[in-house]
């Protein structure tokens, strides 16, 4: 079937519509990512000035350890939040994965087997979340608050007050090893996954579908997108990312307690929101999330170097989160006031 205009019909000369009016460069200059990049640079300089040890290459490498695991989970969480959902069970998934690996190690499983157990349990937990949300139609915030307790509860049930330690020596490579010079395995993995996540979100059909669902799930459904299936996949992905984080964290610590990764979900959500992803879904970029991960890492590590106690650190993180959400609202309000005045 041809869809050209019928011959003879009086079609007015079509006006030329440009692809876009604002050039990508100018758009970047006024973007949230540019602001974040400036903040990251400022925090970096402040750290360098405040502590003489900061600028050492190995020290910087050490600095990455305290946030790469959470940041890997944040990459997956960014997709979930962009689709208008949230997964609060990631900390619980890490605990359950770590417990499962500990039990498997106690049963004599080798390192490849342990990694498979970690990723497998993570994916299974994610699948369960996804089915609760997509098939039963539970709001994701309720479903994952439930599974957050459920997964960690299972972990407590298995371990009680105990500790699992008997990991094989080469298992530590995932959490402590170096890929090249001072570049740790964890950090290399994070960089590679960031690139994959960025391409997936901004260049693929899947990423487009995720944004469409987050912006208007009805319209996405009415456009033929498989909304339910995509939601399940998103939760499986966060489950997998949590499983990978569990492998790294367990390898780094060399032991499993049921309280492992307690409270991670909030740090992970903070990174994503700080990265400019709308908590209502639909908008945000992967570079923003990656930069936000660096900002979070630099701030907490810098404060650590200055011997700032943990309580103060959590106050700083909390203030950053509220500031991030409040700032665009305040700026928008100021702009509107100027326009109406």
């Amino acid at each position: 079937m041809t869809l050209q205009a019928a011959p003879g019909s009086a079609v007015p000369a079509p006006r030329i519509l440009p692809d876009r009016l604002v050039s990508p460069l100018r758009r970047f200059a006024t973007s949230w990512e540019a602001l974040l990049l400036a903040v990251a640079a400022a925090v970096f300089v402040a750290n360098a000035l405040a502590s003489p040890y900061f600028l050492d290459v190995w020290n910087l490498s050490d600095a990455t350890f305290n946030f790469t695991e959470k940041s890997i989970v944040a990459l997956a969480m960014a997709f979930v939040i962009m689709a208008g959902e949230i997964d609060l069970s990631v900390g619980g998934i890490v605990a359950l994965c770590s417990t499962a690996m500990g039990e498997a190690a106690a049963a004599g499983l080798g390192t490849p087997g342990l990694v498979a157990v970690g990723l497998g349990v993570g994916a299974a937990c994610g699948l369960f979340n996804g089915l609760l949300v997509a098939r039963l139609g539970l709001p994701s915030i309720m479903a994952t608050i439930g599974t957050m307790s459920l997964y960690r509860g299972l972990s407590y049930l298995a371990l009680g007050d105990g500790v699992l330690k008997g990991y094989p020596a080469d298992f530590a490579w995932f959490g402590q090893g170096y890929a090249w010079g001072p570049l740790s395995v964890e950090f290399a993995c994070f960089l590679a996954l960031s690139a994959v996540a960025g391409v997936a979100l901004h260049r693929t059909v899947f990423g487009r579908a995720v944004r469409a669902i987050g912006s208007n799930a009805f319209a996405a459904l009415f456009s033929g997108l498989r909304v339910g299936r995509i939601r399940v996949v998103l939760f499986v992905l966060t489950g997998l990312a949590s499983g990978l984080a569990a492998v790294m964290l367990t390898g780094r610590l060399g032991s499993t307690r049921p309280s492992i990764a307690l409270g991670w979900e909030l740090d992970v959500v903070t990174i994503v929101v700080l990265g400019g992803v709308s908590i209502q879904g639909g908008s945000g970029t992967m570079p923003g999330v990656v930069i936000a991960a660096f900002v979070m890492g630099l701030v907490t590590y810098g404060l650590g170097l200055l011997n700032v106690p943990g309580i103060v650190m959590s106050i700083v993180v909390g203030a950053m989160l509220i500031g991030t959400i409040a700032l665009p609202i305040l700026v928008g309000r100021a702009l509107r006031r100027r326009r109406t005045a």
Binding site: L3, V11, L17, D19, L21
Partner: peptide, 10 residues
Amino acid sequence: RFDLRAASLS
């Protein structure tokens, strides 16, 4: 084809 009234496609 539909003579869409818009400033740009973005």
